[in-house]
Amino acid sequence: MHIVVCIKQVPDSAQIRVHPVTNTIMRQGVPTIINPFDLFALEEALRLRDRFGGEVTVLTMGPPMAEDSLRKALTFGADRAVLLTDRCFAGSDTLATSYALAAAICKIGETWGVPDFVFTGKQTIDGDTAQVGPGIAKRLGLNQLTYVSRIVEVEPSSGRLLVQRRAEGGVQELESRLPALITMLEGTNDIRRGSLDDALRAARAEIVTWNAAAAGIADLSPCGLRGSPTVVKSVFAPKPRAEKAEQIATAGTAPDEVADAAVAEIFRRLPGLEAELLS
């Protein structure tokens, strides 16, 4: 079984600051991490490999330093890592990203065997679109299974696949077929800790690095800025609210009195609420 997992290196958005004057991102000292949602995908892929044998290839499109995240994926036990990096990919939106990744997955298929599964995370914490997975599925004609909470059954011989996916208001149980693209829901598993041998292997592993040509992309027009229909026209900071919260006096007051004052204030500000609560 061959499984491709798409991971993205992202800035740890908890640590991002915005320049108060120019409204640009101050990235100084902001560490990069593997998009946390992608780890659920990776772990699920590793479990499938452990059960059915085969290989897990991790793939990322990004700048050369994205190699760090691939190496980390190898320490978790992935078998091979591919870095897709080329200036022509800069400025890609989700449509262009899915084009490049789909092309690279084709090339991976030609080189190491056609994948049975492609995994992506539910979404990234920087782009936050949840569109790249569906984009890849469409471009490669894979059966698309998003927000999967559990892979119930896989029959590699027949290609039958049974999954549960999160839907609005409940869980859908779907039967589908390989090859499939799965975006894993968060919280479904815990990424493993690789053994010392995994870690040693990862530290020494050769990361396969492809530019557009090496990935077999001949037509560059769907790539990067040029191939991106969406354009960011402006970036701005959210408007701060003018006035701060009005404080209810608490000094030296018992909780019950504070609570009474708060209740009175709430009903004063929401005149209809009391009647609604009473009805």
Partner: peptide, 13 residues
């Protein structure tokens, strides 16, 4: 939505 590999594009109009 820009999705540049280095993640910087959204910050730069």
């Amino acid at each position: 939505m820009s999705q540049s590999p280095d993640g910087t594009a959204p910050a730069k109009p």
